[in-house]
């Protein structure tokens, strides 16, 4: 008897529609977020992550309406990210029915924001999204830095130090994305995952690069992830959530049936 490792389909949304880009370009449309969420919940997804990739202020209300609609029909945990910059943004998302919010750029601009958010709303609902890119040369010890703005903007901050600091400030979970792997379908950056997971006390969600079910299992077994996140392999029905769970169970990973 143990806590199950979680499988989390991720909905990248733009103006209320689910999209998933390959390396953030070449975006394809995979449907209505409420419909997609319900489908995943019925199929046994353990959580849903909703990332608002536009996150511009004029579309804020669309996002809140979508979150409210999902939360009214889907009774599994829901994390919302994208454009979370102020305590009021967090309150609005939680009031709309989100269970957790994911903070990315705003944490880099003002790390104290994470502390204030965790103090106000509790660590359990504060996820810090860490977008990391390998910056070491092939013959060096591996080193990763965090990037913002969808992986375009370097910060010079070491990813492992940053994850530790965010946990000290009250992050209850880390959503770790390898920017090198995102959209490539060649698997997680397992070294990165393991390094961050072993460095912090809170759960890690591995993200970026899933192309098949073995990648999901590797994320847990070799990457020491507590949860695995994927988008395109589920959106385009290459694999179902149930197939993913059955495969992980066959590799000895505890999952929710």
């Amino acid at each position: 008897m143990a806590l199950a490792k979680r499988i989390i389909p991720c909905l990248d949304c733009d103006k209320g529609r689910v999209v998933k880009g390959v390396k953030f370009v070449d975006i394809r449309d995979a449907g209505d977020p409420v419909e997609v969420s319900r489908r995943y919940s019925d199929a046994g997804a353990d959580e849903i992550t909703f990332l608002d990739i536009t996150a511009s202020h004029e579309h804020r209300d669309t996002t809140i309406d979508t979150v409210r609609a999902i939360a009214g029909q889907v009774f599994i945990p829901l994390t919302v990210g994208g454009g979370i910059r102020k305590l009021e943004d967090i309150r609005a998302m939680l009031n709309a029915g989100a269970d957790k919010v994911s903070i990315n750029t705003a944490a880099v601009i003002d790390p104290e924001f994470v502390r204030a958010a965790a103090e106000r709303f509790g660590s359990q609902c504060i996820v810090v999204a860490v977008d990391a890119k390998r910056v070491s040369a092939a013959d060096e010890a591996p080193r990763w830095e965090i990037f913002t703005h969808g992986g375009r903007k370097p910060t010079g901050i070491d990813a492992i130090d940053w994850a530790r600091r965010m946990v000290d400030y009250g992050a209850g979970e880390i959503l770790l994305t390898s920017m090198d792997r995102d959209g490539t379908k060649i698997g997680f950056d397992l070294e990165l995952n393991r390094a961050v997971s072993d460095a912090v006390s809170v759960p890690i969600i591995a993200s970026g690069g899933v192309g098949n079910l073995e990648h999901l299992a590797q994320g847990v077994i070799e990457g020491h992830a507590d949860a695995v996140l994927a988008a395109s392999i589920f959106h385009f029905q290459e694999y179902t959530i149930q197939e993913a769970k059955a495969y992980m169970a066959s590799r000895g990973v505890e999952v929710r049936e």
Binding site: A2, L3, A4, G172, P203, D226, R256
Partner: peptide, 21 residues
């Protein structure tokens, strides 16, 4: 506690987050 372990001595993450029996 900050050093929670399972029966086999493996470290457990806190918060206890997810689906348990």
């Amino acid at each position: 506690g900050s050093d929670l372990r399972d029966e086999d001595g493996r470290r457990l993450k806190v918060p206890h987050m997810g689906w348990n029996e």
